[in-house]
């Protein structure tokens, strides 16, 4: 198996290596069994953790990785409860407690604690303690660091977003395609960038992109009205799949969009876990939260135990991802996954 995506057209085979089996860890070398480099009598490291919407599987993975490597840790847990306004208060507390490391969940918390790399040093952000983030999808675009390979500041971490071409290969592994439908929000820069990226992939991966945008209301805000008609157009144009982008507005409209696609017998593929867990998509390729947590913990361990400077630790994404198949939807569409996919995919049965 290979860890890097191979170039080439979309077929069933090329992707399989990218999808982790249950036990496969991308950074297994430093998991259990590695000799602990920490003196037994050392007082535990103090990690100040800020979550955005309560405890998630990311924190579980983070803790289990450090525990398996015998790194003694005490956690100081804080939760922003979806309110970025709480973050400055945490920053104050961090200054008082001086923990060994700060852990942040998501882009808004991370930006609130670390600030932009090119922002003024006005004392509102932490710039002297190491910060490890998880669940930040675009650390460079959001201004947290100038470069993923060399952050150049006190911040490093784990990215959970799966490269677009790998998503497409996963889709082709389930069902080869020549036409790909996309419904996106024309006011979201992130979605526009993704659609542009898909356009550039057409030639190398050998497919045609069929795009439709959500309608905008009188205030210029996206509206779900007319979504059914647009999906019917996409189907009529011969789309083999409807790709559900990580589009914020689309994320709130799965209950309208996915049934419409199902009604048109158009299979849907999700870029976010919610698209399949709650939205009813046929299949999805995701980064497991526990794996993201482990990857972040591996960075924390390098900083705490090996004394590696965070500015030199590259920000990484997972190398293996999880395929999820929604079997009731597959039965409704009568589009079944290739039998071998059952060896590695998580199958939702109800």
């Amino acid at each position: 198996m290979t860890d890097t995506p191979r170039a080439g057209r979309l077929g069933r085979r090329p992707l399989l290596g990218l999808i982790g089996r249950a036990a496969a860890l991308p950074f297994a070398a430093s998991v259990a069994g590695a000799a602990p480099a920490v003196a037994a009598d050392r007082p535990p490291f103090r990690i100040y953790r800020i979550t955005y919407r309560g405890r998630t599987a990311v924190e579980e993975g983070f803790e289990s990785y450090l525990a398996a490597n015998n790194v003694p840790v005490t956690y100081i847990d804080r939760d922003a409860a979806r309110d970025p306004a709480r973050v400055p208060g945490f920053v104050e507390e961090i200054r008082e407690l001086r923990p060994d490391l700060v852990y942040t969940w998501g882009t808004s918390v991370t930006l609130g604690v670390a600030g932009r790399y090119d922002g003024p040093d006005d004392g509102r952000h932490i710039r002297d303690l190491p910060i490890v983030f998880a669940l930040v999808s675009a650390p460079v675009r959001s201004g947290i660091v100038p470069d993923r390979a060399a952050p150049g500041r006190n911040v490093t971490g784990a990215v959970h977003v799966i490269p677009l071409d790998i998503q497409l290969r996963a889709m082709a592994a389930y069902r080869p395609f020549t036409r790909l439908g996309v419904l996106y929000t024309p006011t979201e820069p992130n979605s526009i960038a993704l659609v542009d990226q898909l356009r550039t992939l057409q030639a190398s991966l050998g497919f045609t992109l069929i795009t439709r945008a959500f309608a905008l209301d009188a205030d210029g805000r996206p509206t779900v009205e007319g979504a059914e008609a647009r999906i019917a157009e996409i189907k009529a144009a011969g789309a083999d799949w409807l790709y559900l982008l990580p589009d914020t507005f689309l994320g709130t409209q799965y209950h309208r969009v996915v049934p419409a696609a199902l009604a048109e017998a158009l299979p849907t593929f999700g870029a976010a876990e919610l698209a399949i867990r709650r939205g009813g998509a046929l299949a999805a390729l995701i980064s497991r939260y526990t794996s993201v947590g482990r990857l972040a913990a591996s960075k924390a361990m390098r900083i705490l135990v090996d004394r590696a400077p965070p500015q030199e630790l590259p920000i990484e994404t997972l190398k293996r991802f999880s395929m999820i198949v929604n079997m009731p939807v597959a039965q409704a569409l009568e589009i079944y996954p290739p039998i071998e996919m059952l060896n590695y995919a998580e199958v939702i049965t109800k």
Partner: peptide
């Protein structure tokens, strides 16, 4: 595959 409810004649791949 059969246990997941995929019909015998509709197995893929």
């Amino acid at each position: 595959a059969l246990d997941y409810g995929i019909p015998l004649t509709r197995l893929v791949g």
